[in-house]
Structure formats: C-alpha cells, structure tokens
C-alpha cells in the first residue's frame, strides 16, 4: 500500500490518497458499528421512545372548553425529543467507549494512526445513524400531534390549526429537532472521547442534558437563571422547537448554534486529547 511512499521517501500522502484513506476509515467505522447488535436496537429505540413519549403526553393533555389554553402545540408534539436524546447519547457514548473497554481502540489506532481522522469518521458514521432515526422520530411525533391534538380540544376554531410542515415555524421546529438530535450525538461523542469510561461518560452527558435545566429553575439569581437558559445545551438547543415566539432566552437558530458550539468544543477537546494521550 505504501510502496511508493517507501520508494520516494515522501511522508505526506497525495490529496487523493488522503481522501481514499478517509473513505477507508469511514468504511471501517461503519463495519464496526454495523456488526454489533445494539446499534440497530438503539436506533430503533430512539424513534420508539421519542414517539411513545410524545404520544403519551399529547394523549393526556387536554384543552378544556372555556379555559384559555396557551399551549405551543408544535413544541408539545415534539416533547418526546427530550427522551429520545438520551438514547442518542447512549449510542454516541458506546460508539467510542466500547472500543476502550475491550481494548479495540489500540487496534484501531494501529490501523488508522490519524486520530483526528478516526474521530471524524466516527462522527460522520454516528450522524449518518442518528439522522434517519431523528427524521422518523420527528415525523412520528408530528403525525401523532396532527391526529390526536384536535380530539383533545386543540381545534382550529380555538386557534390551534392542524400541525403542518407548510407552516414555516413548524417546518423550522421539525428540521431543527432533527439537527438537534444529531448535535446531541456529536456532543456525547466528544464527551465520551474525553472521559473514555462508558458509565462516567453516560452520567456526565445525561447530567449535562437533564440537570442543567433543573438547576436553572432553582437558582435564586435571575441573571444566572437566564445565563444557564441561554447557554445550556438543552435549553438553548430546544428553543428551535418554539413556534409561538414567546419569551425565549435566545433566538431559535442562535440556540441551535449554541448547541453546535458545545458539540464542536467537546469534539475538539476529545480530538486533542486523543492526539496527545496514549490509548
């Protein structure tokens, strides 16, 4: 494979060769992920849990006649994303920590010494897995909302039109939720690369996702409350689901950008640690 390199004494591969090496890396990562049974289960569980939680919450929510309901029906329908993100996080954490727990990571690095490239390939494969799961989840949630909500008192006559992707804000919320889940996966992959231990990584990621909003609700200082809401990965990222334009801590796309920054920072830190740390 590197016969020319030996002959000419050149270390830097040609651009085409680099692209090919990365494609090989991608295929290697895909093979690893494809051949463990839990991948399929987790992808299916993402969609199942998201849709199940959304459907349950919608089915028990009611807009009683004679009361002023102020629900954001799009956001309500997409509430299952709060649950589905946990499964995405597990999928992402396992993508790297399972290699550490079995020692496979040393083989991986021997075969693929470019560690940033390896992480990039992992991130790409992970995103390729999460995106279809997220699309199915979001579509299922919106469909559930469309079918069930009118029967629960959220009728067009009372100011709650049928959920439809033709509605700009709903389209943004749906597409944004898909991106949100993908970014959560990347964030979790970054954290897991930093931590390396599966249980610790899961605890930290889920703590970051779920406990930050609770802290925000508890802290005494409104300044800090706003800061946590603006810059916490979940609270900022989920503003993309808002369609009422109410009191948002941060704009919808700005919020998603905050989450993207979190994911990028985690991946960068993970990549740097990979680069400079022994496996």
């Amino acid at each position: 494979m590197s016969r020319t390199a030996v002959v000419t004494g050149r270390c830097a591969p040609l651009p085409r060769a680099a692209a090919r090496a990365w494609l090989d890396a991608l295929r290697a990562e895909w093979t690893k992920v494809r051949t463990v049974p839990e991948t399929g289960w987790l992808v299916a569980a993402t969609a199942a849990l998201t849709i199940a939680v959304s459907t349950t919450v919608i089915a028990v929510t009611r807009c009683a006649p004679g009361t002023g309901c102020t629900a954001d029906t799009t956001r309500l329908s997409l509430i299952g994303v709060e649950a589905g993100q946990a499964v995405v996080a597990i999928l992402a954490v396992l993508a790297i920590t399972s290699e550490y727990s079995t020692g496979l990571i040393r083989t991986t690095f021997t075969a693929m010494p470019r560690r940033f490239g390896m992480l990039g390939a992992k991130a790409a494969v992970l995103t390729g897995l999460v995106l279809p799961a997220a699309i199915i989840s979001v579509a299922g949630c919106l469909l559930a909302g469309r079918e069930i909500l009118p029967g629960r008192g959220f009728t067009a006559a009372r100011g709650f039109p049928l959920l439809s992707l033709a509605h700009g804000a709903t389209l943004r919320a749906a597409a944004g939720s898909v991106l949100y889940l993908a970014l959560i996966g990347l964030l979790a992959l970054g954290v897991a690369t930093i931590v390396r231990d599966s249980a610790a990584a899961t605890g930290i990621v889920l703590g970051l996702l779920y406990l930050a909003p609770i802290v925000a609700a508890l802290v005494a200082s409104p300044v800090w409350q706003r800061r946590i809401d603006r810059y916490g990965p979940t609270s900022a990222g989920l503003t993309i689901q808002d369609t009422t334009g109410g009191h948002l801590p941060i704009g919808p796309w700005g919020g998603l950008a905050v989450l993207a920054l979190w994911a990028a920072a985690a991946l960068l830190a993970g990549g740097l640690l990979l680069r400079f740390r022994d496996a």
Partner: peptide, 27 residues
C-alpha cells in the same frame, strides 16, 4: 454500565422534567 446508568437517570429525571408545568399541562 451504559444502559443501566442511562436507564436509572432517565427513570428519575425524565418524569421530573416532564412534570414541569411550564412545559406540560398541570394534569
């Protein structure tokens, strides 16, 4: 570990978040 840790966190924290009346209806 991963599945167990994620499950126990989700079991306690998800209802807590879904129980927040600012997101869902009081019932």
């Amino acid at each position: 570990s991963v599945l167990a840790v994620a499950t126990v966190i989700a079991v306690f924290v998800l209802p807590y978040i879904l129980g927040d009346t600012s997101v869902v209806a009081p019932d």
